[in-house]
């Protein structure tokens, strides 16, 4: 982590987060803290509750019980479920990012790439066209999209390009916390490698905190500092990523790790 470790306060505090869909369990009693610059991977197979957890944490879903406290830019701790809708929407647009598995869910497909990146800036009051365009160009460069595509719509982009555009769109306002739902899901292997390298670099360079949901242990190893393994809605093992992957304690974790095919 390039982040200054003298920051003693965490960024996010989660207490006993539980979500039921009717009588069906989504996730139960999840508690953890996240520090600035830290990447946490939530790993599990389908139905483990990891997506439910991510959606609850990002206030996309309202949990059944439990709290999530976030340290706002002014230093105040707020329970994100107590925020007014206006406050929450503002938070999601400025201090948070959410990278969807399907980039079309996180982009405006009928609007140019430049406008996609610039939208958040315009939403917080930037009224200088030249500045917005310059910033958009800069970010397209950082996610390795050719500058001459700035006026093209994402409909004409490949999956990998759309995903990189989604990342640029999210990062342009300098968020401190980014949620990612299977960011490399559905992408070709070579495209994945490029995307992961990009993410790794940006996260390190910008000191982002991130919560990454993935079923791919290699992605977890590459991107995250810490890891939580979920099964049937519960966190069954958590700790330093390389420790959990190299010295798994729980039966399910051992099963997961041993199931990876070797190339």
């Amino acid at each position: 982590m390039s982040q200054d470790m003298s920051m003693q306060e965490p960024l996010l505090k989660v207490d006993n987060l539980t979500k039921y869909y009717g009588s069906r369990l989504g996730c139960a009693d999840v508690s953890f803290e996240l520090w600035p610059g830290e990447v946490l991977a939530i790993v599990g197979e389908s139905g483990s509750g990891k997506t439910t957890l991510l959606n609850s944490l990002s206030a996309t879903l309202e949990p059944t019980s439990g709290q999530t406290h976030y340290r706002m830019r002014d230093g105040a701790w707020r329970n994100i479920y107590d925020l007014s809708e206006a406050e929450r929407r503002f938070l999601v647009r400025t201090d948070w990012g959410f990278v969807h598995q399907n980039p079309a869910d996180g982009l405006r497909m009928t609007v140019s790439a430049g406008a996609n990146v610039g939208e958040r800036l315009m939403a917080v009051g930037d009224r200088h066209y030249g500045h917005i365009r310059e910033t958009a160009l800069d970010w397209l460069g950082r996610v390795e999209i050719a500058a001459d595509r700035i006026d093209d719509q994402p409909r004409s982009f490949s999956g990998g390009m759309r995903q990189r555009l989604q990342i640029a769109r999210n990062l342009v306002t300098g968020p401190r916390l980014v949620f990612m739902d299977e960011p490399t899901g559905g992408l070709d292997v070579s495209v994945q490698a490029r995307l992961l390298d990009l993410l790794r670099g940006l996260v390190g360079e910008l000191g982002l905190a991130a919560i990454v949901v993935t079923h791919d242990l290699a992605v977890a190893r590459l991107l995250s500092h810490r890891m939580m393994v979920m099964k049937d809605g519960h966190v069954i093992e958590a700790g330093l990523t390389d420790r959990v992957l190299d010295d798994p304690r729980e039966p399910y974790t051992q099963l997961l790790v041993s199931s990876i095919l070797q190339v």
Binding site: M5, W35, H225, R226, G239, L240
Partner: peptide, 10 residues
């Protein structure tokens, strides 16, 4: 805890 281990390694 994991953060301390990472600082130690760093």
């Amino acid at each position: 805890d994991p953060r301390t281990v990472l600082t130690l390694r760093r």
